[in-house]
Design a protein around this nucleic acid. Structure first.
Lengths: 259, 259
DNA sequence: CGTTACCTTGAATCTCCTCAATACACGTGG
DNA sequence: CCACGTGTATTGAGGAGATTCAAGGTAACG
């Protein structure tokens, strides 16, 4: 059912200085991301209007509110969630470096879910009003945004299958594998280890079970000896064990765009 | 857990004649859809390469296969689903007239889910290879596709919240309201009544419960007297009752694009 | 050295699943 | 025409799974 920590971040905290130029963006150097043309790169430098930092537990976007900005995660962990009136909370998805946040606000005017930092986070800030000019000036970038939206659609579908059909232990295995793989693509895994700043409360609200039952199921999954998870440090020892245990399809490869 | 009926449709059945010109598309006349410029309309006529018909139970796209075509639903009911190895099936979403089908195939090359006709269906067929030229020639149409993808993302998020957090009866109420509202936008509701070509098996695989439990929960929801559902005919009597019962947020309005 | 956040375990209760049987509508072939 | 199979809806019963309430435990932090 989950805790509600959310302090709302003051709007202009730590902005406007020391912005990383897109040309030296550490993500773009990664092999997982597609190359940009010089023109696209130049456009991105003007499209990106700022860089923002948020601390653990701070709210980045709020369900129901309109948003003038769209973000891309540069570093850190972020979660997207929706709440029901009585406090039940479902974590919809997580966002990693390279992932888009707030496209809905740009497309519909209002956010349908909230976004919160799970760790200290750096965000690239884009102006919603300039989104149109992106499509006009650089169709390839427009296509990239569609690609990212379609990509997240397929992740949401995977989560829906998991929550709808898998057992408690399978759900946990699935989430851990999914997050680990995505962290790898984002360059957040070093020697099999990543930061995993989730509480079991987060995990419970991700897989749709109570905290207590999540705890008991997790301890059962631990006995597979496929990973070690202490505090915020997660080490994958044998991904295949989890993959087989929860019958998880292979990761879909392919270079990804990064607006 | 669901039946597997899926006969694969032969590739070129009922194609290549009697194609509806986009300029007289019945959907575009609806107030729910945005207007097109003459240039956009003309482009769409060349982008649409065919029209296809599929019968109830026929497969339109198959998980894992690559697809050269992208579709838009012109008429009829369609479902998207994923299967696990042991036969468990989760229905991911439904597609209504005006909805896009197969964008994933166009973006990633392979389908991550299957698509099946729930009723006789008419589809507009687009060539995946021409998608790029759409973004180049008509940024507005490119933006529309992004809009549609973002829109489906938000529907998937709603379903995820439902399956993750709501009780059995609430889930059923949610699905019925969701489908009814979307059928309204698609012009499929006449005097409060729509065709609803789902079995309880479909419903079960949508909400993530067994058929038996779905049946019992449905009979409990029926007692609210908020709708009548006999065979494939569904009549909404009091949507507000269901909305309150399952604490469903109001529908988000706004004109939608239709590529 | 108390508070706070998080993790863990027990026990009673309720939800949900599986197995199983019945019922009805429909179409098919004898 | 009836007998039969198939697909769908419904109901019962027993057992597994999940929830809630409750209590205890640890580590971090001021």
């Amino acid at each position: 059912m989950g805790h509600r920590r959310g302090e709302v971040a003051n709007e202009e905290a730590t902005s406007g200085w020391g912005t990383t130029p897109c040309s030296t963006c550490p993500l773009r150097a990664s092999k997982h991301y597609r190359k940009f043309s010089p023109g696209e790169l130049k456009f991105m430098e003007t499209f990106k209007i700022d860089e923002r930092r948020r601390e653990t537990g701070q709210t980045i976007l709020t369900e129901g509110e309109s948003a003038n900005h769209m973000y891309t995660v540069l570093s850190g962990w972020v979660m997207k969630y929706k709440s029901l009136e009585d406090g039940r909370r479902q974590i919809i998805n997580y966002a990693f470096p390279g992932d888009l946040v707030g496209l809905q606000g740009a497309a519909f005017g209002k956010m349908q879910h909230s976004v919160e930092a799970l760790s200290p986070v750096t965000l690239c800030v884009f102006d919603r009003k300039k989104l149109w000019s992106l499509y006009e000036a650089h169709p390839g970038l427009g296509f990239d945004i569609t690609w990212l939206a379609a990509h997240e659609k397929s992740i949401l579908a995977d989560f829906l299958v998991t929550v709808g059909q898998r057992t408690a232990s399978e759900r946990i295995a699935f989430v851990l594998v999914n997050l680990f793989r995505r962290a790898q693509v984002s360059g957040m895994v070093k020697r099999g280890t990543m930061e995993l700043p989730l509480t079991q409360d987060h995990l419970a609200d991700t897989i749709g079970f109570s905290l207590v039952h999540t705890n008991r199921s997790l301890s059962r999954v631990r006995r597979l000896n496929a990973f070690e998870w202490h505090g915020a440090s997660f080490t994958m020892l044998d991904e295949d064990v989890l993959v087989e245990f929860a019958s998880i399809p292979p990761a879909v490869a392919g270079p990804r765009p990064f607006i």
